[in-house]
């Protein structure tokens, strides 16, 4: 999934609260269909969680660098040698739908497109 464009930007501004609309928008961005019931339920719960996690803002981080990883590793490479990969049939056996030795997927473009 690509990152949201500015007009897709979710959230109600600077306040740490998530309304029903925000949750619906975030769910859409995450390709997650939600029922009306779930929307109602999650909006309240997520606002409480967001209030709690927003406490990270209290930390005085000045010029503290972000820590992305516990172990400082960079550019881990392996020798450029051909190694066997999984067999096509084995992989396709686990697919929800396959056709002509490929994954079969639903149509990508809607009718109006």
């Amino acid at each position: 999934m690509s990152s949201p464009s500015p007009q897709e930007r979710p959230g109600p501004g600077d306040t740490a609260g998530l309304g029903r609309q925000d949750v619906a928008q975030l769910a859409r961005l995450a390709r997650l269909a939600l029922t009306d019931e779930e929307l109602d339920h999650f909006a309240g719960q997520l606002s409480a969680v967001l209030d709690a996690v927003a406490q990270v803002g209290k930390a005085d981080v000045g010029d503290v660098p972000p820590m992305t990883h516990a172990v400082p590793l960079t550019n881990v490479t392996r020798p450029d040698v051909v190694t066997p990969s999984l067999l096509r049939d084995v992989v396709l056996a686990g697919a929800p739908a396959a056709e002509d030795d490929r994954f079969r997927v639903p149509q990508i473009l809607g009718e109006e497109q």
Binding site: P10, L26, V49, V61, P66
Partner: peptide, 29 residues
């Protein structure tokens, strides 16, 4: 679902620095 939504929010443009970025700095602390 809750965590996917929260994570999507924390990583979205305009909120990334305040949430995910800040959390990573706290991780350093």
């Amino acid at each position: 679902k809750r965590r996917i939504i929260l994570g999507t929010y924390a990583l979205s443009a305009g909120y990334y620095e305040a949430y995910y970025g800040q959390a990573q700095k706290v991780r350093t602390l």
